[in-house]
């Protein structure tokens, strides 16, 4: 079982925080295949989070193929993502690394780079 922590100041939608925290727990091995996720009611009790938000997060996780609902019982981890390593090996990472090197050479500091990344990300992932 995991406990979620909702950061109300982060500006990130609460359901995404849950999705992210489940993914992280899977990566860290806190959650394993077959484990049950807390019910919406118990998340609500601990974090006063709207139960529909938790359910939305679980639907998203189900969409990603990480969990499956068992009607009348709860939501369970169905698969542990194997993407973590492939992501690290992907060519995208190399390209980003190259870009960072050039940015560094051009004299951009940490904040400049962050601003650019955020702006570029917002362009392509508008709803996130």
């Amino acid at each position: 079982m995991v406990e979620f922590r909702i950061d109300r100041q982060s500006g990130m939608a609460a359901y995404l925080q849950i999705v992210q925290q489940v993914q992280e727990a899977l990566r860290l091995g806190i959650l394993a295949e077959g484990d049950q996720l807390p019910t919406a009611a118990s998340v609500a009790r601990n974090t006063k989070l709207n139960p529909n938000t938790t359910l939305k997060a679980y639907r998203e996780l189900e969409h990603l193929g990480l969990v499956e609902p068992r009607p009348g019982v709860g939501t369970f981890v169905s698969a542990v993502p194997a993407r973590t390593r492939s992501l690290a090996d992907s060519p995208l990472r190399g390209e980003l690394s190259d870009w960072m090197r050039r940015a560094c050479a051009a004299g951009l500091d940490w904040d400049d780079v962050s601003a650019l990344v955020t702006a570029a990300r917002a362009e392509h992932y508008p709803t996130a």
Partner: peptide
Amino acid sequence: AGLLMAEAAEQGTTVLMSSHQLADVATM
């Protein structure tokens, strides 16, 4: 607040609550 959310979830209650706490409204 936790009690309210949990019971509403368990009983499937529709809730209409007035509040001045926007942070609460945003999560609840």
